[in-house]
Design a protein around this nucleic acid. Structure first.
Lengths: 204, 204
DNA sequence: GGGGTTTGTTGGCGGACTGCCAACAAGCTA
DNA sequence: TAGCTTGTTGGCAGTCCGCCAACAAACCCC
């Protein structure tokens, strides 16, 4: 007779883990967590439902892990351009940002738009950490000694950059070239003209 | 004997409906929809669980209605300042925005929490409609004949305004006065200098 | 004021989903 | 090949959602 044809194949922990995570990433990218069942994730991954509880604990834990994994992948490549010309450095940084966004389109869209109405504090913290990290990189690039106001302005700017990127990627009311110029000019103006204006303490 | 002491009181449809909606708004503001049970909403409203299905259909329908109701309340007051001075008009509009945001703090925070692609198309549409309406008001104020690029830039600006407001309300890295100046200067610069620069078609 | 009517409200049944765990078996070791 | 390790499965118990038939509070009419 033929061999019993094993009904499942054993995998190394990390391997199976990544396989489940990939399936979960796919589904959680399309629908909010409340509308994705663990049964579905298990089917998509080709394993029994109990297995994902074994690897990740609760469904919520799995979802949080998906969020983290999405934040982890994109922003790996470190800026490190550091030419003398600030304008050129900024331009290059923006270019990398746009390229990253287009390359990881699905993951990025899901991460930016994560969570529904009620904000889940943990999810919020994960996404916010990613944004604050982006601010860190800009601070290092622009003014390592920058104060509280600089960080606040840059955080607002990151909201601007995300919305502008959506105009390019989704709504298509801007070209990549236009977004690039928009982001560059706005950031330059913010830091050189507007920030000094609002940072000074006593001005009526 | 004493009267049978009615076990529940009948209310008019709209009255009961609003009562349930208020309870749902409270709970859905604190937690994502997947973590709020209809049993809880019913208890909070002081009615039987079946009743909210009677009034709103499915849980999802109730959630969508909550979203709409939150979007409906705040931005009602129409700008209508229309003095000759554009700067003064903008300043007043920004002032109203900041006041609205602080007054409806909880509701507004919850609504912006449903960022960009909530991955739920319907929720997405509702929130995005609110933002596009804000853009409409700005377009009417600034340049009624403005083109596609103007709308795109203003949409990006609304992302900027939301993030900046969070810096004031939540992270407290900016004062109200600072946010005001930041929003005013940025909008002015965007429309007067940066928009013309990116709107021109053929520029290397 | 009593009986009939309207319709707002309740309670519970059927199906689906989550969290958990004991039993099973694939693949390694001797 | 027998035994062991541990990745994997299947099902049980509790909770939640969608639905609907029955109930009863307030109203109407005589």
């Amino acid at each position: 007779m033929a061999a019993p044809a094993a009904r499942f194949t054993r995998l190394e922990r990390d391997e199976r883990r990544e396989q489940i995570l990939a399936a979960a990433r796919r589904l959680f990218s399309e629908r909010p967590p409340g509308e994705v069942s663990t049964t579905e994730v298990a089917r998509e991954a080709g394993v029994a439902r109990g297995l994902l509880h074994h690897y990740f604990g609760t469904k919520r834990d799995l979802y949080l892990e998906v969020m983290r994994s999405m934040l982890r992948y994109p922003p790996q490549p470190i800026p490190e351009v550091s030419g003398g010309d600030v304008d050129a450095v900024l331009s290059a940084a923006i270019d990398r940002w746009l390229t990253m966004v287009r390359r990881n389109r699905a993951a990025w869209l899901a991460a930016v738009g994560a969570q529904g109405l009620g904000r889940d504090p943990e999810v919020e913290a994960i996404v916010e950490a990613g944004r604050e990290a982006a601010v860190d990189r800009l601070v290092a690039l622009l003014d390592p000694d920058g104060g509280r106001e600089l960080r606040a302005v840059l955080r607002a700017y990151s909201g601007f950059a995300e919305a502008a990127s959506l105009e390019w990627l989704v709504r298509r009311r801007l070209t990549r070239e236009q977004v690039h110029r928009l982001l560059h000019s706005t950031l330059t103006t913010l830091v050189r003209s507007i920030l000094p204006e609002i940072a000074q303490k006593g001005s009526p």
